[in-house]
Design a protein around this nucleic acid. Structure first.
Lengths: 232, 232
DNA sequence: AAGGGGATGAAAAACAGGTGAAACCGCCTG
DNA sequence: CAGGCGGTTTCACCTGTTTTTCATCCCCTT
């Protein structure tokens, strides 16, 4: 299940490595180098993050300070704190500030991934479950979509982006979803703003459904966005 | 929900980029390059702005000065300040002058949009809600108009401009609204003043209602303007 | 009756989104 | 380590819709 992750880390090399690993896991990662940027990004609600990975030591607003602000603002966004300092006093300080977990550098990327999985499982609204909308049943674990039709059940294997897109549609059935919203929710922010990734990906999804002989549940509402209509 | 935005920025290139992005979001944007122009434009009440985006550094009247004047005049128009200077002292000065939010250059356009959304949400009269007038119910999120008649409820999908126009009428029921006011409220100022966009768009709206078998609630008051009459 | 403002329909312009081919990219395999 | 592969993105071009313009007509005021 792909997550939307905010990485707050000032060491460029480490940040790059983490990003690469997370992206390889299909996660959507935004990276900021300093605390204030992270704070304003979160507050701006540009994207909805499922997790923040925050370095302890940051220029400007430090990790624990950022954490405290988040909690002060009533946000429950899970925070995984990274630190070079292994001793327990820091660990306690970090958790006090509202971090949910704590990982001391250097660490194996595998451990980071494991911690992330654990953190997700602890979420109250944790859902490794399937998503249903009308005859559509999405299985994130298997990355496949099952569609019930008169002719029987069709099972379609989806790629990572197709899955994300379909999930977003199924979570917002019947609503007009502006392309720009898909853009900011499903793609990382730093990319070229004049691109038609969204249109291209929607097309791939539509085409995949069509190639299995299914009618497209995704309609285009001219110059307003897309709408997912589960019932034909 | 389209906003009427005043952009006060002297760097032509940046201004153009911002305008393009905002327009893409259906907002109506007026651009002035310097502070005094902005001040007189606002004071003239030619249009009612929902937001001003103001550069810090401007020829003549600077951003913070403009801000102070606005507040001095008792205007609550939300102001988003732009600045090349990232340090906190300026941030404080800007907020002191009466700005509502603060964004330091360079910034991602996405972040600008997010700030604007956040700012709107903070407005006391914030309304993402539907607008009702008599049997007419306007849903900006879905961009559609529902009309209750004896025959049942008719749902009409509106285009962006039709929605803006209908919203303006529904917010000012039974009043005579001069074409020029619609013009200045719903279209940006820099456009060709001898054009009949308003009449054309009113016609489009009327025609759309008629095509669904509805009587037109918009009447023309000869050489005075239009009047929206919700009850037949 | 003249003049002005608005109405009208057709056509043009502007724009968003669709499309297929090709490039790109990380990953796997030989 | 090269080559192939699937997935993803970009590019250039096409299509359909929305919005504006234009030329003309109509009708109400003065």
């Amino acid at each position: 299940m792909p997550l939307r992750i905010l990485l707050v880390e000032d060491e460029a090399e480490l940040a790059g490595a983490i990003q690469a690993v997370l992206r390889a896991q299909q996660h959507i990662v935004d990276h900021v180098a300093e605390g204030l940027g992270a704070w304003s990004l979160i507050r701006s609600e540009l994207a909805t993050y499922n997790l923040a990975i925050v370095d302890w030591m940051l220029p400007g607003l430090s990790g624990p300070e950022l954490c405290r602000r988040l909690r002060g603002a009533g946000l429950t966004l899970p925070v995984l704190m990274l630190t070079a300092l292994a001793d327990t006093s820091h660990r306690v300080q970090g958790l006090d500030a509202g971090a949910d977990d704590y990982l001391s550098k250097p660490f194996a990327m595998e451990e980071l991934l494991a911690r992330i999985r654990a953190l997700q499982r602890r979420q109250p609204n944790y859902r490794e479950l399937m998503l249903r909308a009308g005859p559509y049943l999405l299985d994130p674990a298997e990355s496949c979509l099952s569609v019930q039709a008169a002719a029987g059940i069709t099972r379609i294997v989806l790629s990572a982006k197709e899955l994300q897109l379909m999930a977003y549609f199924m979570e917002h059935p019947r609503q007009i979803i502006p392309g720009a919203r898909l853009r900011s929710q499903l793609w990382s922010l730093e990319e070229d703003p004049i691109s038609n990734v969204v249109a291209a990906q929607v097309r791939l999804l539509r085409r995949k459904l069509a190639s299995h002989g299914l009618p497209s549940p995704i309609e285009t509402v001219a110059s307003k966005g897309y709408r997912f209509e589960p019932e034909p």
